[in-house]
């Protein structure tokens, strides 16, 4: 081989690696970074469908910051997003732990498969189902009437609105996250449990002192994925919102959708998108620092 400068030789040595990552890089540049740049450009414009759009500086951002409606949906997004991040991590962990206590293997396997089902269903189907179950003459209220309680129209009570959104999201995602935890549990070295059993630890102690610490890795990954999705809640709200509870549950992405594609204020919608992107980036970096999870 000919003598080359250290850098060139490094490049040529790794030429195959570059080739292998090229398709992914090319895709992301073309379909993520260029569009991102375009989005940023549009956010600085009074965007016109035809003809030249004029640049208006940070006007769209200014509008965003002084609109009360924007801050309301931003607040909703934070509340729903944060709850989703935490609950969709810890509740499935709890389910996985209790499922782990079940001795019957057949039950365990079947349950595990069932748990995953809601993940396959689209939000339209899931939404229709829950509206139905929680309707004034639905299953839940039928049970309430049995116990002489008044029937409640859950979906139009403002104080239940956020809880419902969080709960239904949890129901849909729990199974999938739960599988992550179950898999991690089954990977724990059985010898550790045996040792603990000999020491006389009961099942709660075993779960708390052995299983939970072993799950922190999975927990970090789950949280990180949840965080990236947190500000982008859309489908669920689109399907489940109604005007009565809208003020409590309308989220940023819905706001973007309404302003961009229904009110045709594309510049303004882009400004909010850029804002969402920056916040996500910030939060992700923060979470990565805190959990010390690195790519």
């Amino acid at each position: 081989m000919k003598k080359k400068s250290p850098l060139t030789s490094q490049f040529s040595r790794n030429r195959l690696l570059y080739l292998m990552i090229l398709p992914a890089a090319a895709y992301f540049i073309t379909f993520s970074f260029f569009p991102l740049a375009d989005g940023i450009k549009m956010s600085l414009q009074d965007f016109r469908f035809v003809g030249a759009s004029s640049y208006i500086g940070l006007e769209n951002y200014r509008t965003m910051f002084i609109t009360p409606g924007f801050w309301r949906v931003f607040g909703n997004t934070l509340i729903l997003g944060l709850s989703n991040v935490l609950l969709t991590a810890f509740v499935p962990m709890f389910i996985a732990l209790s499922l782990n206590e079940v001795a019957n293997r057949g039950f365990k396997r079947t349950f595990q498969s069932i748990l995953y089902l809601p993940h396959i269903l689209s939000w339209v189907v899931v939404g229709g189902l829950w509206v139905f179950i929680l309707s004034p003459n639905g299953l839940v209220n039928a049970a309430r009437v049995l116990f002489d309680q008044e029937s409640i129209y859950f979906f139009v009570v403002e104080k239940y609105a956020r809880g419902l959104m969080i709960g239904i999201n949890l129901w849909k995602q729990a199974g999938y996250v739960c599988i992550l935890f179950l898999a991690a549990i089954s990977g724990i070295n059985p010898e550790i449990y045996e040792a603990a059993l000999i020491d006389g630890a009961n099942s709660a102690q075993r779960a708390w002192y052995i299983t939970v610490p072993e799950l922190t890795g999975t927990l970090k990954v789950v949280m990180l994925l949840n965080v990236m999705g947190a500000l982008r809640i859309f489908d669920q709200i689109y399907v489940l919102r109604n005007e009565v509870i809208a003020e409590k549950i309308d989220v940023l992405m819905y706001y973007v959708y309404i302003h961009g594609l229904e009110q045709f204020k594309i510049g303004y919608a882009s400004a909010i998108s850029v804002f969402i992107f920056l916040i996500t980036l910030l939060v992700t970096l923060l979470v990565r620092r805190v959990t010390k999870y690195h790519v």
Binding site: A24, A25, F28, F31, S32, F33, P35, L36, D38, G39, M228, L231, R232, F234, M253, V256, Y257, G260, L261, A269, S270, S273, V274, I276, F277, T280, L281, T284, V295
Partner: peptide, 12 residues
């Protein structure tokens, strides 16, 4: 590779 995951689809 990591940044694209944070770009909202409605934006692009």
């Amino acid at each position: 590779i990591t940044v694209p995951m944070m770009i909202p689809f409605q934006m692009i």
